[in-house]
Amino acid sequence: MTSALLVSFAMTLAMAATPILLASLGELVAEKAGVLNLGVEGMMLIGAVTGFAAATLTGSAYLGCLAAILGGLAASLVFAGLTLGLSSNQVATGLALTIFGVGASSLIGAPFVGKTVARIGPLFPAALAEHPLLRVVFGYDLLVYGALALAAAVGWFLKHTRPGLILRAVGESDTSAHSIGYSVLAVRTAAVAFGGGMAGLAGAYFSLELTPMWADRLTAGRGWIALALVVFASWRPGRLVAGAYLFGAVMTLELHAKAAGFGLLPPEILAMLPYLATIAVLTLISVRPGRVSAAAPACLGKSFSPA
């Protein structure tokens, strides 16, 4: 590969990884608090469409991102109200949220099909990104850096802050967290809301940067990959970054290899790999239950009612 090719490859990879990283970071926080929200795809679609709508109406991609966060957050609060407020089943509620998101985004988006919007665009001035090697570092939009910064922030938050500790405690043992006097439901609601906002932002990355447009089902199933990635990363933000970039690399490499004239594997087999790898990782961390933080949060997916 020539250096120009490498630069372009690296950039495609980073941009493919970013929305998955954003969505899975949000889901990671929710799962760390013990909530399994399978509605990521639905929240991403709602974020994608609200972001696009807001950006076309205001002319600002950043305001679009903000609207996307709010859209995803609003959708997640429906989920929170049901699963936490009324202790409904999380799996069923998450699936319903996805059905809802697909429908709602299509209805909201109908007037915006065929419209265009300016991309979020590179963060740094073009002069800084002129040299190819500098472009790999300075050539991206805000969200690529933002996702990485957020991953670091989430890692630090979970590990080194008191609220982070409480959040993990709530996910590991809701009853004891409750008996010490923490509000399990408040913590979980906040975690779910964070997950919703991040999923919304991830959706906006599609409609405002990768493919600046709105069309039905624009995210084409990336939300499910984000869900798998959280497990693949065994609930650790650092591994999440590695996992998202690894996923981006494999997908980008597949296309590059085929464009260069040789296929790696049948595309269907390649598409299975992330999920097979996730099952393998899950099994491995369960076989060697070393540190507690390496395994699934103990209360994941279980309802909690304080009474």
């Binding site: 120009a4 090719l5 372009s8 490859f9 495609t12 493919a16 599609f206 990768l210 493919t211 447009m213 069309a215 089902r217 624009l218 995210t219 084409a220 990336r222 997908m251 980008t252 296309l255 590059h256 085929k258 464009a259 260069a260 004239g261 595309p267 269907e268």
Partner: peptide, 24 residues
Amino acid sequence: KVLWVSTWYDPAKEADAAKALIDQ
């Protein structure tokens, strides 16, 4: 250069395929 993406509709993948072809 033909790049088979095995889908009729996946905007992000179509865009990445386009970039890969351009790079080639």
